[in-house]
Computed example of a mutant assay.
Amino acid sequence: MVLAAQERGTEWLARGGLRPTRQRLALAALLVGDGEDRHVTAESLYALAGQAGEKVSLATVYNTLRAFCEAGLMNEVVVDGSKSYFDTRMDDHPHFYWEDSATLSDAPADRLRIEGLPDAPDGMQVSRVDVVIRLKRAAG
């Protein structure tokens, strides 16, 4: 089981053209080792790494997540301008942000319709549109 997770992590890093350092391999195995998509914060990944017995600093986790994003392996989803989630699912899709638990999950994309976007300013192009649907418990 662990070997399969390490192999998936190694292949994932290779797709992004990243050198497989010990820390990158450990974090990649935690992120994609089971083949499932994940939404993590740097803090939650740091906690997972600690539970797995990996010696890695929170700063290294932040830097590694940024490197994974720059390599096109993950997307960063910013909530409230201060909270970042990192998503291993790379296709365009909306998210639910669950305010009660401060968690992010995929929302079904088949019902989302964006009718139009404003023109990008001169010299710029739209690279991505992030849709975060905030949820809270209904009153009553």
Score class of each variant (00 low, 15 high):
109 A>H: 10
135 L>P: 00
13 L>A: 03
57 S>N: 07
35 G>M: 07
18 L>Y: 10
140 G>K: 07
68 F>N: 05
109 A>G: 14
21 T>N: 01
112 L>I: 03
4 A>R: 11
22 R>Q: 14
81 G>M: 05
104 L>A: 09
132 V>G: 01
119 D>F: 09
21 T>Y: 04
84 S>Y: 03
10 T>V: 07
42 A>Q: 07
87 D>E: 12
31 L>K: 05
53 G>F: 01
135 L>N: 02
137 R>W: 03
18 L>Q: 01
28 A>V: 10
40 V>L: 05
110 D>K: 01
71 A>K: 02
118 P>V: 09
126 V>M: 04
65 L>E: 09
76 E>G: 11
113 R>A: 05
17 G>P: 05
19 R>W: 15
65 L>M: 06
102 A>T: 13
136 K>T: 07
50 G>R: 13
84 S>A: 15
7 E>T: 11
79 V>N: 05
134 R>A: 05
45 L>C: 06
12 W>Q: 06
12 W>H: 02
66 R>W: 08
9 G>Q: 00
132 V>Q: 00
8 R>H: 04
91 D>Y: 09
64 T>M: 04
63 N>Q: 15
111 R>M: 11
1 M>Y: 11
43 E>G: 09
76 E>Q: 15
4 A>H: 11
95 H>N: 00
134 R>L: 04
123 G>W: 02
100 D>L: 12
78 V>A: 12
136 K>A: 05
20 P>A: 02
35 G>Y: 03
75 N>Y: 12
40 V>C: 11
133 I>S: 09
113 R>K: 11
21 T>D: 06
79 V>W: 00
70 E>L: 08
64 T>C: 11
73 L>Y: 03
96 F>P: 00
13 L>E: 03
